[in-house]
């Protein structure tokens, strides 16, 4: 318990150092752009790939479970849309990104720490936390809505693909289902949630990577710890945010 409190205190202090006015705005914007490509654009293909397949599988699974003649067929499209928008494109996608982006950040910063590159920045008089971590957080938090929107679109398209190519449901009924009783607020809810998760992923991974002590083994451990801790916080905050925004 004391260790957890100590770690939380260290995390808060690191964020205090991180979230400050950048030394040079021009350098900062350049860094943010670089990180957007590295953390965001490079993650697009995996987001699209996973979304299409999960959307397709959800459609098949739901259609197989709905056997009652009292439930209309378009419900498949409706349930698929709700699952994709409300949970998959934010929570599940962020759990996946915690593995890809989180481990990338933790291992990059951890390697910089063990090879004394962070010390080199400090000696030059650069606020290394602000220089290295802040652009990553800003870039990922700003780009996550794009990833979430892509995930929603391709998730629903995955289901549509199944409706077109198989006989589990007709395309017309699926189309009607995905438009049925649509609440635009759910999009806002998903984007807000994914932005919070993006902050969690990038800041926790940065914390573990930045504080690595030792060598390659510890870098690997930091990477694993960052994924585990990010996942725990994502799931916990999912419950909290859902309670706050939907109930």
């Amino acid at each position: 318990m004391i260790k957890a409190l100590h770690d939380f205190g260290e995390y808060v202090l690191l964020m205090y150092r991180t979230i400050s006015v950048p030394e040079r705005w021009s350098v900062f914007f350049k860094q943010v752009l670089k990180e957007i490509f590295k953390l965001g654009v490079d993650s697009l293909w995996i987001v699209i790939f996973i979304s299409i397949f999960i959307g397709a599988v959800i459609t098949i699974q739901v259609s197989l479970k709905i056997v009652s003649p009292l439930i209309p067929d378009f419900t498949v499209g409706y349930i698929g849309r709700e699952i994709v928008i409300l949970e998959f494109s934010s929570t599940i996608m962020c759990l996946i990104l915690a593995g890809k982006v989180g481990s990338n950040i933790a291992s990059e910063l951890g390697t910089m720490r063990v090879t004394e590159q962070i010390d080199a920045l400090e000696i030059m008089g650069v606020n290394s936390a602000n220089f290295l971590i802040f652009p990553k957080i800003v870039a990922f938090v700003c780009f996550i809505p794009v990833l979430a929107v892509f995930s929603m679109f391709f998730g629903i398209m995955g289901g549509y693909l199944i409706a077109w190519t198989s006989d589990v449901i007709t395309a017309a009924k699926y189309e009607f289902g995905i438009q049925y009783w649509f609440n635009a607020y759910y999009i806002t809810y998903t984007i807000v949630k994914s932005m919070v998760f993006a902050f969690i992923i990038s800041s926790i991974a940065s914390y573990f990577g930045y504080n690595v002590k030792g060598g390659a083994l510890q870098v690997g451990k930091a990477s694993t710890n960052s994924v585990v801790m990010s996942s725990v916080f994502i799931l916990t905050l999912d419950l909290v945010i859902t309670h706050l925004m939907l109930i």
Partner: peptide, 13 residues
């Protein structure tokens, strides 16, 4: 005003 040469060079990868 300080320059530092590290054991492992510490060049930015």
């Amino acid at each position: 005003e300080m320059g530092m040469l590290f054991q492992g060079s510490a060049l930015f990868d």
